[in-house]
């Protein structure tokens, strides 16, 4: 099973789960009733976390390993 197959399965799962939400949406608040919200949040959230922490590290927090010596 190649990488292409894996990604194929992955995208099929995502689509099915979004469709399932369209059919049977359920949630406590508005944002939870939007179909595919979690998928979108996961994608954007992941990119945001990587970008934000890398920016923090690059401009401020990351130092050479002998910083404290």
């Amino acid at each position: 099973m190649g990488r292409k197959h894996l990604f194929g399965i992955l995208y099929v799962c995502l689509t099915v789960s979004v469709l399932a939400e369209v059919v049977n949406f359920h949630g406590h608040d508005l944002w939870q009733t939007i179909p595919g919200f979690s998928a979108l949040y996961g994608f954007i959230g992941c990119i945001f976390i990587i970008a934000a922490s890398k920016a923090l590290g690059h401009y401020w927090l990351q130092k050479e390993e002998d910083y404290y010596d």
Binding site: G42, I44, G45
Partner: peptide, 26 residues
């Protein structure tokens, strides 16, 4: 499932950015 699968997709796209660098974080 949506959350985790889409996180994986985003990770795969940006995996080059996550390589370890020999640094410490304050």
């Amino acid at each position: 499932s949506q959350l985790l699968l889409s996180t994986f997709v985003a990770f795969w796209l940006l995996r080059g950015m996550l390589h370890g660098t020999p640094t410490i974080t304050l």
